[in-house]
């Protein structure tokens, strides 16, 4: 089980959270086209490496936040609040 650092509550076990899919997929005016809508709904980066993703601390503060996690090791590299830019990792 993962330990996840909620930006509001601190480190809590994975069971308190629900996963919300890839982060930073925004609806823009381009999304109105068939191709844009397909990309928005379905196409995903699915990287082997650092993944920006949404989590919700559903059994805690109830709030959404974003995280950067390494999909090879499952290690969380950063968590940050919704609306903040994706942090740079060294």
């Amino acid at each position: 089980m993962l330990l996840i650092d909620c930006p509001f509550c601190g480190e809590r076990p994975e069971l308190e959270f629900s996963y919300g899919g890839e982060a930073h997929i925004a609806r823009t005016p381009d999304t109105a086209s068939d191709d844009g809508w397909t990309a928005f709904l379905y196409d995903r980066t699915n990287p082997k490496g650092i993944h920006a993703e949404r989590w919700r601390h559903v059994h805690g503060c109830g709030r959404f936040f974003n995280a950067l996690r390494d999909t090879v090791s499952d290690k969380f590299r950063a968590t940050y609040r919704i609306g903040e830019a994706r942090p740079e990792l060294e």
Partner: peptide
Amino acid sequence: SVVMAMAGLRLPLES
């Protein structure tokens, strides 16, 4: 997804 990204394609897949 990793292999197809080498051809510049994004797929409706998650692993």
